[in-house]
Design a protein around this nucleic acid. Structure first.
Lengths: 337, 337
DNA sequence: TTGTATGCGTTATCAT
DNA sequence: ATGATAACGCATACAA
């Protein structure tokens, strides 16, 4: 391994001079600098991030929390997309990405300890149980954090526009003439609460009455439960004309149930998903859904976290809302007269 | 931040003694060790991975290459599953995971340089262009590597059993009475070549003739192209009775085309996918496919890489084959009279 | 403009 | 059984 020391010996200057030349300090002669850099390149010098971290107390490394409480985690396209764009943007800004978890090796650490252990400059909190005490400890610490789809007091968050998403869907469905709209929702999380409130609020504002039995509990990413909920809705005497699903993937369960009962989409029943994953746009008929801009969210999260790290004095905690996009697809039928 | 120095002062011993006590060296008195450890815990001491890395030349950090040449990369469930299990197993063994890429910040590095820069003890090469010179440079270096689904001379690989997978599918399809079997394949990669050879070989061994026009080129994870290939196959005068798709996801394109033409699965046409992703098992009829055990692959890759790192003298480069599992599903019809 | 000296936190070596 | 010291590679304050 070539170090600054090797270069200094080769060039007959001190290690300090080499360091300064390499880091572009102006107090080194232009010719010396040029020479040193050339030699460094020749010798195949690579800076050592570890030594630099130890010296500067900055690792240029970002920790990410992707813990699959739902045993699906990274396998959900929403999260893998976020991770992917997060990674790209962080790298663009000179930061690497390391996963943070509990229990590394035999040593049992919590998230905060793990992040400190690796000298992470900041942490992105993505797919976790947001009320986990270990997460709260991290949030309460001095480490800069950005949370996704969850708000902590005085902390920065990047939020998918769940209110706007559901509102856009319901408005579109309303415009298509539907007045009996049911919703199947995921497990009780902050996101689910927002979506449900937005659903009820939007319906109310449009003068749509929503019977209690039009609101069915299921789970995200679980087609089976959504299928069961669909069956219950189909059994009603005042069957809805349109069903909203927890997400595009769980819609598959509804799709199967509808087909099983010979209920055609969208002629006999209109449906809509949520997420706008690839799958939704390759199904025929194309699924009506709301695309969450996961790419933008990962990018924003990285950008904001780097800002928090690099300008701690001037950057305020804030909630960054990322809008998605209504994908009209073909699964909501126009039933205006 | 609490350091060894703080503990040494508090305990009235030297830093060396604290370090040894914490690391379980036997040349420190049992009582001293106990006391030091208690105080360390009390003070909330955390080891500093950076300092340790600098001193020991070992980072307990594994680099991973997940580069989405196909612009899908991590979003493919096969890869996100591998990453997920890789992460879990690496952490269990005390290693963290960091993404390796080209071009970190303004500094332009290749993979090798990036891995060295971060002092990675080893690298897992997953989703990349395996013939990229930058990858070859990494492979040729002194850094321990494990490649997934690709073999390099004198290097360790973890391989999905593509030969066995296709063979199992074809045998099953044969048993169900099919003799006219078509295959739509992905872009030309080492994996694709293996699958095609296995396809032809298995068919030959079963006495099945495969006309050239039963072999169609498409792309992985691209339903559209698979849909077009399906259309071509349907237009043939001697239409196949069963179609193999590049993967479960691209099958969706075929599914749409079949439905569009009123061809029922599996009554009018049998089909099979590849991968065994979640989607395949929630579709109705359930897709006949071969499940690649991505979880086991990630786990094996981590385990083997750690072995290469920790016992460099005694661990041989080897190819580890991971078998998958035939998922019979319901999309291949039994046409034996 | 360049060099000297020091320390970041840790561990290994060699004394005591 | 314990301690003093050096070293890992780098960057900075300060001296020259």
């Amino acid at each position: 391994m070539i170090t600054i020391k090797d270069i200094s010996e080769r060039c007959g200057v001190s290690r300090a001079t080499v360091s300064k030349a390499l880091n572009g300090h102006t107090d080194i002669g232009a010719d010396t600098t040029a020479h040193i850099r050339r030699v460094a390149k020749e010798m195949g010098y690579l800076p050592n991030a570890t030594a630099r971290t130890l010296k500067l107390g900055r690792s240029h490394n970002i920790g990410v929390l992707f813990v699959d409480k739902t045993a699906c985690g990274l396998r959900h396209e929403y999260f893998s997309s976020i991770l992917d764009s997060l990674k790209v943007e962080a790298e663009r800004r000179g930061y690497d990405i390391t996963f943070i978890s509990k229990d590394i090796g035999e040593f049992s650490m919590d998230y905060y300890e793990h992040a400190k252990y690796r000298n992470c400059d900041g942490v992105v909190i993505a797919s976790v149980d947001f009320s986990d005490p270990a997460v709260l400890k991290l949030i309460a610490s001095e480490i800069p954090t950005v949370a996704l789809d969850f708000v902590y007091d005085n902390r920065t968050s990047v939020l998918s526009d769940n209110i706007g998403g559901i509102s856009a869907l319901v408005h579109y469905i309303y415009e298509m003439g539907h007045r009996r709209i049911a919703i199947i929702h995921g497990e009780d999380t902050s996101v689910t609460q927002k979506r449900l409130i937005s659903f009820h609020k939007t319906c109310a504002s449009l003068g749509i009455r929503v019977p209690e039995y039009y609101v069915k509990a299921a789970l995200y990413h679980d087609p089976k439960l959504s299928g069961l909920a669909t069956r219950e809705l189909l059994a009603l005497s005042d069957r809805p004309t349109c069903i909203l699903y927890p997400d595009d993937f769980s819609f598959i369960g509804g799709m199967n149930e509808l087909e099983r009962q010979g209920v055609s989409i969208p002629d006999d029943m209109s449906v809509a998903g949520y997420d706008g994953i690839l799958l939704s746009q390759v199904l025929r008929p194309r699924l009506t859904t709301y695309h969450q801009d996961a790419e933008a969210m990962g990018c924003e999260a990285a950008a904001k976290l780097v800002e928090l790290i690099e300008q701690p004095k001037t950057s305020l905690p804030q909630q960054i809302m990322v809008s998605g996009q209504l994908l009209k697809g073909d699964t909501v039928k126009n039933i205006n007269d």
